[in-house]
Design a protein around this nucleic acid. Sequence first.
DNA 1: ACGTAAAAAGGGATCGTTCACTATGGTCCT
DNA 2: AGGACCATAGTGAACGATCCCTTTTTACGT
Lengths: 344, 344
Amino acid sequence: MDGADTARRRPTITDVARLAGVSTQTVSRYLRFNGGLKPATLERVEKAIRELDYRPNLVARSMRTRKTGRLAILMPAMAFNPSRMLAGAGATAQDAGFFVDVVSAGGGVRARSDRLLELADSGQYEGILSLAPVLPAVESKLHQRTAVVISADFDDEMRGIGQLADATPLMRMIEHLAALGHSRFLHVAGDAQFASARARKQSYLETVERLGVESVGVFDGDWSGESGIEAIRSLPSRARPTAVIAANDLVAAGVVRGARERGWDVPGDLSVTGWDNAGVGQFMTPSLTTVDVELEQLGSTAMAKLIAGLRDSAPEMAEGSLFRIVWRESTAEPPAAGRLSRGR
Amino acid sequence: MDGADTARRRPTITDVARLAGVSTQTVSRYLRFNGGLKPATLERVEKAIRELDYRPNLVARSMRTRKTGRLAILMPAMAFNPSRMLAGAGATAQDAGFFVDVVSAGGGVRARSDRLLELADSGQYEGILSLAPVLPAVESKLHQRTAVVISADFDDEMRGIGQLADATPLMRMIEHLAALGHSRFLHVAGDAQFASARARKQSYLETVERLGVESVGVFDGDWSGESGIEAIRSLPSRARPTAVIAANDLVAAGVVRGARERGWDVPGDLSVTGWDNAGVGQFMTPSLTTVDVELEQLGSTAMAKLIAGLRDSAPEMAEGSLFRIVWRESTAEPPAAGRLSRGR
DNA sequence: ACGTAAAAAGGGATCGTTCACTATGGTCCT
DNA sequence: AGGACCATAGTGAACGATCCCTTTTTACGT
C-alpha cells in the first residue's frame, strides 16, 4: 500500500532560513507572531515558506515548548452508534501499539478534505483512516507525504476497503422476499456521495434484474427519514410496490410512516426493510426488518488494513460475514391479489 | 480549576539513570526491549523507575524516532449522534488553537478510568475532557500531574459541568402533562451510573411531589429499550399510570411497545415522553414526544470550560437554554374516566 | 556627524530520547 | 598466550523547533 514514497525529506525551519537568507530564529519569530520583522525580511521568509511548502514540525515544537496543543476526549463506548466502529478500530490499533485519536471533522466534503490534508501534513500521524468520503483530488496531494490513508467508505477512485460497501445482504433480502411471492419492489437509496449507498443501489438493480422481478424504480434519497416519506408520497397509486428496500433504518421508518399516511398497512400491504439495526427499530410497531452490521469487526478490519499498509505486510482478514439479516414484523408475505387495503 | 499544581517536574530518563547509577542509554535500552542488561543492572533500573514513577516522554521519543505511534480517525459529522457533541467541542477547541483527539475508551468504568490515567500521564495532552463517568478515585491520582479533567457527566464528587445533567425540561414536561389532566405518573430511569440519569430521576421525584400528583413509582432501568418494556410488564394492572416519563427515546420506544403488548393505546390510554430526539422517533407511530438537546452547544460549552480552566480564566457561558421540548403524537390528554381501553 | 536607544536579526543552548559508535571486560578457541 | 568474539555499558551527536541573550542595524534627536 505505497509507503515507500517518502521521496523528499520534509523541509525544516533551517531549510527555510537558508533559502530566505536569514537565521532560523527569524523564521521562528515569523511563525509565532507576525511581528518584529522588517517588511522586506518578512516577505523573503514568506516566499521561502511558500516555495518549500514548509510546515512546522509540531512534535519538535511541543518538545521545546512543553505544550502539545492537544486535548483528548474520552468517548463513552456506550449505546452510541459510531463508537461501535471506533471501538473496534481502536482496539486493533492499540494491540498493534498505536495510539488512536479520533478527530471529528464537521462541515462538508470540502472542509473534511482540507482537514484531512492538514492532519496528514501535521506530521503527527503515521496513518489516517477516514470513515467519511473525501474529495478524490486529495489523494494526489497526499502522495508526496508520508501518511497513508485508507477509508471504509471512500470515493471509488480511492483505495476503499469495500467491506462497508458490501451489499450482499441486500441481495439476500430481495431473494427471500421474492421467494415469499413479492414481485414489485422499490428502493429508496442513500446519499450517493457514500460508496455504501451506491453499492446498495447497484446491488438492488442487479438483483431485481437477475430475479426478473419488477422494480417500480429507485428513489434517490439522502439517508433521512424524510426521504423515506417522500419516496412513498411521490408514488403514483397505480405503481404500488409490495416491498420497499430502504437504504437504512431511518429511511425505512420514514417509509413506514409514509405508507401509513396513504392508508397502506405494513406489513399487510407493504413489506419494508432497513439497514443498520438501529436500536429503536426493534421496538417500533411494526418492528423493523433490518441488517445488523458488525461495526466493531468492521472498524477493526479497516484498522488492520491500515496498519498492514504501514508495515508493508498483508492484513489478517477476519473470516465470516459481518452482516446478519434480522427478520422482524415489517416484512411478510405480499398481500393476496385483491386483498390489498384500498389506500390512496 | 487547579492547574497551578505542577509542583514536581516530571522525572526524565536522566534522573532515572542517575538514581540507578547507569547511563541514560542503558535506561533507554531497558525501556525499548527488556534485554541485554545484566540482571543486577536491570533490577537497579527497574527500582529507579518505580521509585521516581518515571514514564518516558512520548513527545521526545517521537521527536527522535520520527514516529508518533498515533493514528487519526476522521469521524463523519453525519447523522451520527454523539458526533454532534464532538463537533461542537472540536470547533471550540480549534478556535482556541488546540488539536482535538477523540480517544474512545471501551469497556467498563474501571477500564475507562485506567485509560484516562494513562492518557493523563502520557504527557501528550494538556487537558482531558471525559464525556463518560469515571471512578471518583481517579481524581486524587490525577492531582499530582498536569492534566486538567472536566466532565459533562461525571460522578458527583467530580467537577461536572452540570448542563448535561440539567433535567428542568423533564420538570416542564410533567407540569404540562399535569395541566392536561394527567395524575398518575411513572418514571423509567436510566443507568444510575450516569449523573444525567440520576438528575432526571431526582427531578421527576421532586416535581411529582411538588405538584402533588401521584407517582406509580420509578423503574430503575439502564437506558435500554428492554428496560422500557420490562417497566410496563412489571406493572400490576391496578396501578396503571396515565403518563410515563422515560429516561430516553429508546426506553420510550420500549414503553410504547410494552403498552401495546398489554393492549393499552398510546396516547389514548397512556402518554409517553422520551429524551434525546433520536432520529427515528419522529417517524414512529405514534411519533415520540421528546427533548431535543443542543449537543453541539453542549460540547462546545464543556470544551470552553476545560480551556478556561487551563488558562485560569472564566469561561464564556452560552446563554439560552440548550433544551427544547418537542411535543408529538405520543402525548395527549389522559383518558376520560371509564374510557380506558380494557387492556391487561 | 555623533551618541543613544529601540528595533531587527543572529548564536548557541536546550527540551528528553534514541541512534551509531566506541570502550570495556570476560570467555573461548586455536 | 594471543586474538577473535560476545555481552554489557557508555559517549556524543542528532531530531527540529524555541528561548534567552547578545550583536548588529536602523531611527532619531541634538
